[in-house]
Simulated scan of single mutants.
Amino acid sequence: MANTIMETNFRFAGQKKVYKGKVREVYTLENDILVMVATDRLSAFDVVMPKGIPFKGQILNQIATKMMRATEDIVPNWLMATPDPNVAVGKACKPFMVEMVIRGYLSGHAAREYKAGKRTLCGVAMPEGMTENDKFPEPIITPATKAEKGDHDEDISKADILSRGIVSKADYEILEKYTRALFQRGTELAAKRGLILVDTKYEFGKTKDGQIVLIDEIHTPDSSRYFYAKGYEERQARGEAQKQLSKEFVRQWLIANGFQGLQGQTVPEMTDAYIESVSERYIELYESIMGEAFIKADVSHIQERIGQNVSNYLKSV
């Protein structure tokens, strides 16, 4: 088993504060600079699993940052540099307290709600007569409130976001526009790899000068769901499960072992063999999504490597 990074405690030059999310740890420095470290923590049903997944942080960081570079012509983002395989450095901004979830297909959470008899999700109507993994006539935006650490994200409608003043009407219209543009680009990029971008989430913030920018991760297997395009129609016609590229395989394993993040439930044991299989699956996800071989970084002294690479970069800024 390779070394994993479950927690960091760096002291970078000019450091002001640290925020530790479910997977990423964000260091705020002077001059409005953020250092975001992608750990190997695995989160499912808004619960952080007790063991890390080797190379997961590197995989997520590299997909997210490369996808940001591939979309910066249509949506501005916070990214400045990637001084380490697990690290992104960018502009500090105030995050909007909503996640912009967009769905092209009836899958995951939407499918579970649909099976329960619901035909409206976040104030958006879903057509009658759909089968799990069917394509929506048009992609739907189903926002969620951004949870504080340890809390669950919750579905919320556009009307509630506006009435509660979580986001202004003018800003929300920009978020919607950017969300649809990013999903369209993501769909095109996925198609080139023989994949279908099923659904995803985007997070945005506002810089001190008032610019709305894309933040956090984008088009990663943690934030997105992909199907293999080949055989999609045939599997739907036969009522078979779709071949997926996403974190859904972890969720399904947890559900099969009696865990959905509900009160009183215990995370099932994650053996070394299972952890290794998840790591291998994430590498497969990277190579399929990016269309290139994954190169494992040296993890023999992972904390020291990250600290040195970031410090060297900051000296050059």
Rank of each mutant, 00 (worst) to 15 (best):
V101A: 13
I102T: 07
I102S: 01
R103F: 03
R103Q: 15
L106K: 13
S107T: 05
S107E: 06
G108A: 09
G108F: 10
H109E: 11
A110F: 08
A110C: 06
A110W: 12
R112F: 14
R112H: 10
E113N: 06
G117E: 13
G117K: 12
K118G: 15
R119F: 13
T120C: 05
L121P: 05
C122Y: 01
V124Q: 09
V124M: 14
A125H: 09
A125W: 15
M126R: 12
P127I: 09
T131I: 11
E132A: 11
N133I: 01
P137W: 08
P137N: 04
P139K: 02
I140M: 08
I140P: 00
T142L: 10
T142W: 00
T142D: 00
A144L: 06
T145H: 03
T145L: 15
T145R: 14
K146Y: 11
K146M: 05
K146E: 12
A147F: 09
E148L: 14
E148G: 08
K149S: 04
G150L: 05
G150R: 06
D153N: 04
D153V: 03
D153Q: 07
E154H: 12
D155R: 09
I156T: 10
D160M: 11
L162D: 07
R164D: 05
G165V: 13
G165T: 08
S168L: 15
K169M: 08
K169G: 11
D171I: 06
Y172P: 12
Y172G: 12
Y172L: 12
E173I: 08
L175C: 07
E176L: 11
E176R: 13
K177A: 10
Y178P: 01
R180Y: 14
A181F: 02
L182A: 01
F183A: 00
F183Y: 02
Q184K: 15
R185N: 01
R185F: 01
R185W: 03
R185D: 00
G186R: 00
G186L: 00
G186E: 00
T187M: 01
T187K: 02
T187S: 07
L189R: 04
A190D: 00
A191T: 05
R193D: 03
L195N: 01
L197Y: 00
D199L: 01
T200V: 06
E203M: 04
F204P: 00
G205C: 04
K206I: 15
K206T: 08
K208H: 07
K208N: 06
G210N: 12
Q211G: 09
